[in-house]
Design a protein around this nucleic acid. Structure first.
Length: 114
RNA sequence: CGAGCGGACUACGCGGUCGCGGCGCGCUAUACGCGCGAUGAGGAAAGUCCGGGCAUCGCAGGGCAGGACGCCUGAUAACGUCAGGUGGGGGCGACCCUAAGGAAAGUGCAACAGAAAUAGACCGCCUUGUAUCCUCUUUCGCCUUUAAGGGCUCCCGAAAAAGAUUGCGAAGCAAGAUUUUUUGGGAAGAGGAGAAGCAAUCGAACGAAAAUUGCUCUUUGCGUGAGCGAAGAGCAGGAAGUGAGAUUUGCUUCGACGAGGCAAGGAUGGAAAGGCGAGGUAAGAGCUCACCGACGGGACGGUAACGCCCCGUGCCAUGUAAACCCCGUCCGAUGCAAGUUUGGGAUCUUCUCACAUAGGGUUGCCCGCCCGGGGAGAUCCGUGAAUAACGCUGGAGCCUAUCGGUGACGGUAGGCGUAGAUAAAUGACCGCGCUCGACAGAACCCGGCUUACAGGUUCGCUCGUAUC
RNA sequence: GCCGGUGUAGCUCAAUCGGCAGAGCAACUGAUUUGUAAUCAGUAGGUUGCAGGUUCAAUUCCCGUCACCGGCU
């Protein structure tokens, strides 16, 4: 297990209030340093019907899991932007860019990771 | 081959790598993890429109209110579902649709149009009464209860008898007014004046800051009609105009007033008191008759809805109940965020009520029944508290065979073990194939209904065309 | 998950028991003004969310569906 799911409502409020935000074309990334790595995906009703919402959540989790091994411990909220279609490639590329820019990678030796 | 109808099934497939949910086994030694294994969304999981299970509530006492359903029989745990049938409607047909009880229990509504809208008589048809004037021909009546019949009077014709008188010189013959009797016919008809209108003609007055005109054509409205009006187009002309009133001419329609009968006909309307044809009548009418429809009764068939046949009634009350309503059947309420268990004890303060009052609960209301304590705040320690566990998936379960039943469905035998999350699990990448993949994601569980949907497979059937 | 409500002109809203779909603002045209605003006169604008049914007739009654809004927890 590389990361934990965020479930508590209080933690959501804390991150939204004092977390740091980073933006990209497809996703908004809110993070706050913590003792261990935690993550949650926020997808409300305005993203479509249940099939569409589930697909967005799966794609985001998969993309986050690609980088979860190398991230320093912090609490992360992922807020996708509303679009017509969602693809895995865009999510993976943007999350990678953000993590690099915000210097969240713990281990800088393995730079050849895709 | 083309067009179509009905039913059933399926819902991209295969392989590899990484990853996710819970389960089982093993390791670590119970905070967190690791490895292996099998397994893991639908026909609609959707809408939440019905029905049930299950759970709780002193519900399983009564009444009122409210809601749902409504051809018949069956299936089912139950249903507004399903099966088979009946009636009605649609289609050439296969087949499809159908909330399909009651309108003589009562209330409401039926705009506009139309003479009239649930009722009657505006026009009309028929019978009858009353009533004005003039002209012509003329035979120019009356009574009785009517127009049948009778009586009286008058007129005309015929026959018989009597017969004043007249002619012939007489007998006699001829003519013959008149009277009586019998018998036949007749005692009425034609025309106009009248009323209401339309057009033309004459015309007092108005009209120079001038179109307010005429003719033709087309469309259309009103009127029974003569005719009148509106809109548009074209042509012509330049006082042609409007108009109180009057006369004549041409034209149109109708007789007036009253009583009674009728519901045939009258342009409307969704609907006009059965339809249609014939007889009948003063005119008419199911007034009578045939056929069709309606209603009532009976026989037969069917469990029944109903069908079919016979007889009778001339036939009376339009539609709407998906308006209120009546009749019959059914319904206690709340929903797994239901609910059960564990996790908190002490002190203080305050509010309300107390033996049937008040309050709370029980169904929206009433009666009835039940409850003895209940609620709030502060301080201290304690705290994962929108939490944890249960409910939670073995159930009216699925598959196969067979038996009963037209069928829905039921019985028997054998086999199977088939998601259970809770910020909520199915994804990413690579390769191959094709027809290039629609609608769409479980949240307590079932039975239905409805809605969305790229296609594909298959069975049965209908119509048309061509060939044999 | 459960329960309730609303859809009418470009906007905000009416329509009594089923019988001609209306008002205000906005738009357009004309008048007024040197011009604009205001004012006055007039005009146009509707699949009553969609689809089906009952009825002679539906914005209204019934059924289905779509969109939006609100409440409980």
């Amino acid at each position: 297990m590389r990361y934990r799911r965020l479930k508590n409502k209080k933690e959501f409020a804390r991150i939204l209030k004092s977390g740091k935000r980073a933006y990209s074309e497809t996703v908004t990334f809110i993070y706050l340093p913590d003792t261990e790595l935690k993550m949650a995906v926020c997808v409300g009703k305005k993203y479509g019907k249940s099939v569409q919402r589930n697909r967005v959540k799966r794609l985001l989790r998969e993309a986050f899991a690609r980088y979860a091994v190398r991230l320093s411990p912090c609490a992360v909220l992922l807020l996708p932007k509303i679009r017509e279609t969602y693809t895995f490639g865009e999510f993976e590329r943007d999350i990678g860019k953000i993590c690099k820019r915000e210097r969240l990678f713990e281990d800088r030796i393995e730079k050849d990771m895709p």
